[in-house]
Computed example of a mutant assay.
Amino acid sequence: MSRAAQPTKPSSDPSTGSVWTRPQRSRREQPALSRDQIVAEAIALLDADGIEALSMRKLGTRLNAGATSLYTHVSNKDELIELVVDQVYGEIEVPKVASRAEWRAAALECGNNARSVILGHPWIASVLGEMGMSYLGPNMLRLTEDMLELFESGGFDLVQGGMALKTIWSYILGIAATEAAWMTSLARSGQSEDEWLAGMASIAEQAIAPYPRMRRLHAEQTAGAVDETRRSNFDVGLGFILDGLEAQRRQ
């Protein structure tokens, strides 16, 4: 066989910059500190103090471990972010359905499950642009497979299901990440959501005074509890998307 025709091995080039494309060490080479321990502690740090607090040095201190132990599992902070994001995706549950009639309610439940998980880890809004190849993570792959199955149960073919998944996921991330960023900003202020809105009420009312439609919309949206309104708005928006997907499927 000529040199040019020889089969090539799958690339493990570290320049791809992803924890998922780097060869794993053998069990014999693994240090006492496990990847699961690192990821769990990193998420605890992020949940408590936010993305600004995350550093390899600080994480090592919390784990009572040297940098060598951490770098055995991750080459840098970007790879660590891939791991923690995939772990968070693992918390999202996709309901199983027994008939086509159940798929829409299951899709709505899945969307709310994803929203709740993201709001439970609001720092994730800060890393959406830094997730690298997180789509190759095992939890993200499982989530994608389960969502494709959900759409298949609703009568979508595989290509339609793939487009539906991308559409819904974009909506979920857009809404939930915006909410998460808002909640993070609110936490820094030291105020509750109701306190902040009460303080801004008169300013907002003066600003929208010349705009009659915005005044009416503002009055309707502030009639209920803030968190309930955000949840309701999310459901309504997702419902619009599901309506469109159903219409497209019928065509």
Score class of each variant (00 low, 15 high):
M214L: 15
T222I: 02
T222S: 14
R213W: 03
I203C: 02
V226S: 13
H218R: 11
H218W: 15
T222V: 03
E220F: 06
A204Q: 07
Y211D: 13
R215F: 04
R213P: 01
A201I: 00
H218P: 00
R216D: 13
E228A: 13
E193H: 00
A225K: 07
R230I: 12
D227M: 11
S202N: 13
P210D: 07
R215G: 10
T222D: 03
E228M: 09
V226P: 02
T229D: 04
I208A: 07
A204S: 13
R216M: 05
A198M: 02
R215N: 09
P212E: 14
V226A: 15
D194C: 00
E220Q: 12
Q221H: 10
T229C: 08
E193V: 01
A209M: 12
G199S: 01
R230W: 13
G224V: 09
A223L: 10
I208L: 05
A207P: 02
M214I: 08
T229E: 15
M200G: 03
D227I: 08
A219K: 12
A201K: 05
A223Y: 08
R213A: 11
I208Q: 04
H218F: 15
E220V: 08
V226Y: 12
Q206H: 11
G199E: 05
E195C: 00
A207C: 05
D194E: 06
T222G: 01
I203R: 12
R213N: 06
A225H: 07
A219P: 05
Q206D: 14
Y211G: 02
I208G: 04
R213V: 11
S202A: 15
S202F: 06
E220N: 11
W196V: 02
M214E: 13
G199V: 02
